[in-house]
Design a protein around this nucleic acid. Structure first.
Lengths: 256, 256
DNA sequence: TTTGACCCCGACGCAACGTCATGGTTTGGA
DNA sequence: TCCAAACCATGACGTTGCGTCGGGGTCAAA
């Protein structure tokens, strides 16, 4: 037999045989006068065994241990091996299941694949009123950031928070406020800015208070600098001023 | 932010950031006077998005396509992407299920991991009478070879064949014959050899005939040379002679 | 004698980083 | 004030199981 014949008999490629020679798990056979390798049936058997082992997940380098001395109390070692292999498979299955869960939820929410699936529907609820794709992107970026900063444990809280904000009784107010926020810009007068802040606080403050009472407390204390940096680098100056004023108002009103 | 800070915030290693720079999916930020990279919150967001994508199975190189233009009719592309990802996961699950099935059967049969699990119990049935580990190994090797040569489609046939041979009414005869075959050697006289062949044919011929009638026809025609080579290189001369004689006897007796 | 179809060896490529090796910078504490 | 610890940087090799060139000999049939 020469290489191609052995390869086709064993169901592998010639390159595979060469690889097995290189890493030393398949002994080099004798050569013919022209330098060609001449394989025998024992080489075929060896390759077949190797393939059986990799089929159950054994790494190539470990195959010699199992092939060259499978007799000496092999049962124990074999059991341990099977345990290791199955543990590996189980962990892979867990990973795959998690990935599929995410994919399914992404499908259900029809969201982009780079946002947390739990928040997709809230984003969709607001995306309609964003006046530009740029604004949409900003919302999404901020969502990604927030979702990560609150951590896995904070995610349900965040979801509850957004659920409250997108409830039928609040949503119209919210979209109105958001739309006005989007359109803040250089053309906005000082009076208009103050009016916006006033409207926002009076319309949303009750909701925020009720949320605070319901223990929806998200701890973002060690993330404020990041969020501040985000605003500073992405929002229009007028929008930043609005945020600052809102912050002041909420601080003073919560001191009561 | 410098590297370590961004890395810990994003839940990755510094090396990972460097890798993302190298393959161009994360833009190099500006440097401080000392050459250190100075990251901003947008870099953090970018890394977080990348991590979300790889978490669902997107290869790193494809992330820019999804991150830099997720808005233009993205829904279609996103759906196709999810389809691809899920298909990939499904194929992995199939592979894993197959591997686990093999492992489970190996556990059940408690066989070595390099033999087909379906044949493990037959091997065990004979392994007890093999007079040496060498003989055991030969049996196992031959089994591996045979199982591969008959192919996936032939395996059930082979199993049926062996089932018949290891049925309670035949097994004692078989073990007796096998044991005598194992012990053939230089010390065996010509008369003893002939006697063995005779005994074997008379005791097993009926079984073989009944199997032949039941359509247990295994086509090994294009494998005879391999099997012959195997015998020639592993069996004792006397054992080879026995096989040859058995072959002759069966040929002539089947001509009837 | 010219194709194909074999054979050989050597070496790079892949995916997503881990892990040195080597050297500069900054900072808090003895 | 000086040192150790903890940052930062670049560069390069290692991992897994082969696929895929590139360059060059060998052997059969046409």
């Amino acid at each position: 037999m020469q290489s191609a014949e052995l390869a086709s008999l064993a169901g592998v490629t010639v390159r595979t045989l060469r690889h097995y020679h290189q890493i030393g798990i398949l002994p080099e056979p004798e050569r013919a006068a022209n330098g060609y390798r001449r394989y025998g049936v024992h080489d075929l058997i060896r390759v077949l065994k190797i393939r059986r082992l990799i089929a159950v997940g054994v790494p190539l380098e470990e195959t010699p241990r199992l092939l060259d001395e499978p007799l000496a109390g092999g049962s124990l070692e074999a059991d341990a091996l099977l345990d290791r292999l199955e543990a590996e498979l189980m962990s892979q299955e867990v990973r795959i299941a998690a990935q599929r869960a995410v994919i399914r939820r992404l499908r259900g929410e029809s969201g982009a694949p780079d946002i947390p699936p739990e928040l997709g529907r809230f984003l969709r609820a607001i995306s309609g009123i964003a006046p530009s794709r740029e604004m949409e992107r900003i919302d999404r970026d901020q969502t990604v950031l927030l979702a990560h900063l609150v951590g896995e444990s904070g995610l349900p809280q965040l979801v509850g928070f957004l659920e409250r904000l997108s409830a039928p009784d609040v949503l119209p107010t919210l979209t109105d406020v958001a739309s006005r926020f989007y359109h803040l810009g250089q053309h906005t007068s000082e009076a208009q800015l103050d009016e916006f802040v006033e409207d926002l606080v009076t319309s949303l403050d009750p909701v925020l208070r009720s949320l605070a009472e319901e223990d929806f407390a998200l701890d973002l204390s060690n993330a404020t600098s990041l969020l501040a940096e985000y605003s500073a680098t992405t929002l229009a100056p007028m929008q930043q001023r609005a945020l600052a004023k809102i912050g002041e108002r909420l601080d003073t009103s919560s001191e009561n």
